[in-house]
Nucleic acid binder design. Sequence first.
RNA 1: GAUUCCGUAGCUCAGUUGGCAGAGCAAGCGACUUUUAAUCGCUAGGUCCUGGGUUCGAGCCCCAGCGGAAUCACCA
Length: 574
Amino acid sequence: MPRISTLRTSGSGSNTWWTTSFLRSFSAESVQFDPMSNGTQEEQVQDEGELVAARRAKLAWLRDELGVEPFGRHVEGLTSLADARARFDEAADVAHEASVAARKEDESAPLVDDRPSARVAGRIVQHRDCGKLVFMVLRDDTGDLQVSISKADMAPEQFKVAKKLDYGDIVVASGPVGRTRRGEICVWASELEIHCKSLAPPPGKHHGLSDPEARYRRRYVDMYANPETIRTIKARSRIVSRIRTFMEGRDYLEVETPMMQPMAGGAAARPFVTHHNALDLDLFMRIAPELYLKRLLVGGLPRVYEINRNFRNEGIDRSHNPEFTSMEVYEAFGNYETIMELTESLIHELAVAMREDLLALEPERDLGTAEEPILPYGDLRINYGRPFRRVRYHDLFEAALGFPASDIERVRAAARELGRDDIDELDDALVVNLVFEERAEPTIDPAEPTFVLDYPSAISPLTRPHRDDPSIAERVDIFIGGMEIGPAYTELNDPDIQLSKFTEQLRGVDDEESTFRSLDEEFLDALRVGMPPAGGLGLGIDRIVILLTDSASIRDVILFPLMRPVDAVDEADG
RNA sequence: GAUUCCGUAGCUCAGUUGGCAGAGCAAGCGACUUUUAAUCGCUAGGUCCUGGGUUCGAGCCCCAGCGGAAUCACCA
């Protein structure tokens, strides 16, 4: 027999008829004892602890004793909790209170009740049973609202239900919007129905769910336990929507290109491999849409963008998830200057809108001005005022190191100071960039969005060299809050140079890399057909959202970040 | 992949030198017609992440594993 011995059926004087009734219902309905059953089924039942058993017992009680079906149906005329709260009418509430007081003196006095009413739905996050009064707090995606119930105002059966509801249950309540004596705006419910009985033990009432692992694995619990989670989800959705509106306003066409590609191109990253059965063909989850978007420029679309997922088979940390969302943009006859202007305008506009969203919630916050929004990010206050800082790669290098990048002896000396022992084997350009990343990048003020432009050509193999100085590339990277948000380029459209750069790139590839790097002949064919000169941009959408929502980790802005399955134990051993 | 830290009741967390497993909230029963983390009385609730080892004795010490977080590497 499954273990339900934690629930006593005798020996304790405190048990009443309905405890035992719960227990009978529980053992009769929920636990189907089968002498032939195997251990696994029994274990599943045993997993249900005391808290679940109590909830199942209430479920059975609702059905058997009250004839209430707690898994409800379609409901009409619902108002969000925020809207219901907004309906509150002070004068009507005062008049109602006065008439109730008058009737206590004189029973023939008329009852005045012009309070607006509302029908609301939500999940119970607090429940207080005070005898003939019950107070509960409902939560929906617009906020919290108290529902107050007086025994005198409700049918006896419904009041019984109201007293026995649990944290986590979903209910619908209807009645006038008023205040309690303590001034709390609430729905004074005359009707109350349970529409979903929550059978899982809820998270804590005070601290919510704070264990990060539990929050990511059980996001649906995190969402109702921690309202900021829904706030971030909504903010992300608004940000993406605003990006689309912005791009559409500038005549960019949104397109969708393959996410499963025969060749993983467009970036230097390790791909995931998958397989098409009917074609018996290995495919790569895309690491970038770039080479397909450029084909569209070849075909004649002047301005295209794509917002979608890339998949990169690499490490996971606060700013990296294996699948992440980026926006790539290509603009015929643009260059990295026009793309910088686009990027700056877009990010500025997003910050302006986010500032307004934040002020709508908290008008008193100091968030700069509409032209120069200042948004919090951790300990920083990032100023999104235009123009963003622009600094050339070599100038930033020299300012940080005290000597120019062309002084290669001093650069190599600085690199050795970083503790690298492979310096002598590296090309000059790679050593310069190493020192740049370690010493110059950290000097960028994280509170000031900054474009770093004119990277060395030698480390930018897919970028068009600068027309005045071929040793530098028309490439720009934007940094905000210490994160690289995305690079922009003047794209290469000379097919012969592109071929030689590809070939050169493939030469340095090791055995492991060669399994997923190959020469994309179709793309080269497209370039030979002819691509207009173009500016291109890759923008990390998750990172933009991290910044604008002041989130600590990419996992907070991705609904279901990748987690190792808990049960995948020892499978790989052998 | 490396290093460090973490894993104890449904949730949030204590746990002393290795000596009977603790609290608050949540849960069950009772009281309460204006609560606000309601209050008051009673009751129940544990695979101390898993598996080994040391020890008379392990939540605590050692080894291995699993999961998570941070930092690093890869990368965006």
